[in-house]
């Protein structure tokens, strides 16, 4: 239970950083932090403390559920591609507006 609470705390800290950071690169990094914490949350939910690896279940211990793990690998790969897309957009934004500061960028949008 304590571990689940700590993971929820990590997700909360990541969302806090995502919401309050002023630099665009920092926002993208905190998006990745939230993603990694959510993956950890799923793995912890399906974890059995006396269990074993879901390979060759005949070796004795009860294996943990392998389906969430397979899904989480997909999440990692998709997160990497989302990050690459966001970084490409940040380069374009820098060339267009000359800054990566959220406050200045939002004001620019209002003026146009």
């Amino acid at each position: 239970m304590l571990q689940l609470a700590l993971i929820l705390l990590m997700i909360g800290l990541g969302l806090y950083g995502l919401a309050t950071s002023r630099h665009l690169i920092k926002s993208i990094i905190f998006l990745n932090v939230v993603e990694a914490s959510v993956i950890l949350f799923f793995l912890r939910l399906f974890y059995i403390s006396e269990g074993g690896v879901p390979i060759l279940p005949s070796l004795g211990a009860e294996p943990v559920d392998p389906i969430p793990q397979a899904l989480m690998i997909t999440t990692i790969v998709i997160g990497a591609s989302v990050t690459a897309l966001a970084l490409m957009m940040s380069i374009k934004i820098y060339h267009q507006y000359g800054t990566l500061d959220w406050k200045i960028l939002l004001n620019k949008e209002d003026n146009q």
């Binding site: 990745n32 990694a36 993956i39 912890r44 690896v53 879901p54 793990q69 690998i73 990692i76």
Partner: peptide, 18 residues
């Protein structure tokens, strides 16, 4: 941590990508 939760494949992917 992923490794300790018996998700060896996820741990490998996270090391390489993350």
């Amino acid at each position: 941590l992923y490794f300790l939760y018996y998700a060896y494949d996820v741990a490998l992917a996270e090391i390489a990508i993350g």
